[in-house]
Amino acid sequence: MDERLARTLPQLGLRERKKIKTRIAIRAAMYRLMAEQGYEATTVEQIAEAAEVSPSTVFRYFPTKEDIVLTDEFDPFLEEQLRNRPTGEDPLVSLVQVVRDGMRHAHEHGQGEIVLRTKLVLEVPALRARMTETMAETSQVLIRAIADRTGRARDDLELRVFAAAVLGALREALVVWAERGHEGDLMELVDEALGVLRHGLRD
C-alpha cells in the first residue's frame, strides 16, 4: 500500500478504511489479471474471485470495468495539498506544483500500474472516453479548493478552464509517453507539458 495512503488510513473511521482497502484489493486483482490475460479477457467475475469479494461488491465500488482501471484514492490528497499551499501564492504555481508532486509520487510508487494504465488507454476506446470523465471529476475537486483559496465562485468559467488546462496538459504528457512506448523520462514530459501553460508556445 502507498505509504501516504497508509498514513491517512488511521485518521479515517473503520467504515472508510474498509472501503478504501476493498477498492485497493479489487484494483490490484484487476491489474494482476490484465497483466496475465489482457483487458478484454478479464471479467468482473474473475476480478471478484481474485479479490475475494462478490461481483456485486465490485460493481458497488466500480460501476464499470473502466472505472477499476482509471480511478484511484488520490483526489482527496491533491485537494489537501492544494489547500495547504502558501497563502497568496499564484494559483497557477500552486496547481502546477500539486499536480506535478502527485504525478511524481504516483510514478515513483506505482510505475508499473501507470505503464499498464496508459497502454490500455491507447488501446481501448472505452477507457479513453472514461479517462476524460474521470479527469473532469478530478477537475471539480481542484476547482473547489482553488475557489475557496481565491474567493471565486465554484462555477466561475475562468476557474474551470484553468483547472481543465492543467489536467489536460498532464493527460497529454501521459498519452505522449505511452505513444513513445514508455521510453524516456515521464516527469520530463510532465514538466514540458506544464511549462506550456506558464510560458506559452516557443519558437
Rank of each mutant, 00 (worst) to 15 (best):
M1W: 05
D2W: 10
R4T: 01
A6L: 07
R7F: 01
T8M: 10
Q11A: 08
G13F: 00
R17C: 09
R17E: 12
I20F: 00
I20P: 03
K21A: 07
R23E: 14
I24K: 11
A25S: 15
M30V: 09
M30D: 02
L33A: 12
M34G: 02
A35P: 04
E36V: 15
G38N: 06
Y39A: 13
E40R: 15
T43H: 00
T43M: 02
E45I: 11
I47K: 12
I47Q: 10
A51R: 13
E52D: 15
V53T: 03
P55R: 05
S56G: 14
T57I: 13
Y61N: 03
F62T: 10
F62R: 08
P63K: 09
T64V: 00
E66K: 04
D67Y: 04
I68G: 11
I68M: 08
I68D: 07
T71H: 00
D72G: 14
E73C: 07
E79F: 01
E80F: 02
Q81S: 13
L82K: 12
P86H: 00
T87W: 01
T87C: 03
G88M: 09
G88W: 11
G88E: 02
E89R: 11
P91T: 06
L92N: 15
S94C: 09
V98K: 09
V99H: 08
G102D: 13
G102T: 04
G102K: 07
H105C: 02
H105A: 10
H107D: 01
E108T: 11
E108W: 09
H109Y: 07
G110Q: 15
Q111C: 03
G112T: 04
G112C: 07
I114S: 11
K119N: 04
K119Q: 14
V124T: 14
P125M: 11
P125H: 01
R128N: 12
R128K: 14
M131A: 10
M131F: 12
E133T: 10
M135W: 10
A136K: 14
V141N: 09
V141C: 03
A145F: 12
A145K: 12
D148E: 13
G151E: 01
R154H: 12
D155Q: 13
E158H: 12
E158V: 09
R160K: 05
V161T: 07
A163D: 05
A163F: 02
A163V: 15
A165K: 11
A165S: 15
A165Q: 12
V166P: 10
L167I: 03
G168W: 08
L170T: 05
L170V: 05
E172D: 04
L174N: 07
L174E: 00
L174P: 02
W177I: 01
H182E: 11
H182C: 07
G184C: 15
G184M: 11
D185L: 07
L186G: 04
M187W: 09
E188C: 04
E188P: 00
V190A: 05
D191M: 10
V196P: 05
R198Y: 06
H199C: 02
G200S: 03
L201M: 14
